[in-house]
């Protein structure tokens, strides 16, 4: 199966708020510090947004909505990514798509 990537989703996300996932260096410290031990790494979920993988974002809705927004990841992030800000944007996008 071919998965197409595209910039449209990232554009939609940026319309909803500051989405700076491209700053992420994939070092994984966010995962190491996450109290929830999120099953899909924060950086992976953000990457779905960057690559335009709508279905992957939808499939990981529980990850997006279970984030505690506690910022433990941000306190350690060497790249200064606004991880919880990105999660908030993904939540907004999911709510908008579902017309909640």
């Amino acid at each position: 199966m071919t998965t197409l990537v595209g910039p449209e989703l990232a554009g939609e996300l940026r319309r909803l708020g500051t989405f700076d996932a491209e700053v992420c260096m994939n070092c994984g410290i966010c995962t190491a510090t996450c109290p929830l031990g999120i099953d899909v790494l924060p950086r992976q979920v953000m990457r779905f947004g960057l690559l335009g993988l709508d279905d992957e974002v939808r499939r990981h809705e529980e990850t997006v909505f279970s984030c505690l927004l506690c910022r433990a990841c941000e306190a350690s992030c060497p790249a200064g990514v606004h991880i919880t800000g990105n999660i908030r944007v993904l939540r907004r996008w999911l709510l908008e798509k579902e017309a909640v």
Partner: peptide
């Protein structure tokens, strides 16, 4: 570096909140 109480997940995922 405080550790979350889990509360923010409670409205949707109470079991996850309890584990944290």
């Amino acid at each position: 570096m405080t550790w979350c109480c889990g509360g923010p997940a409670e409205a949707l995922y109470p079991e996850k909140a309890a584990a944290v």
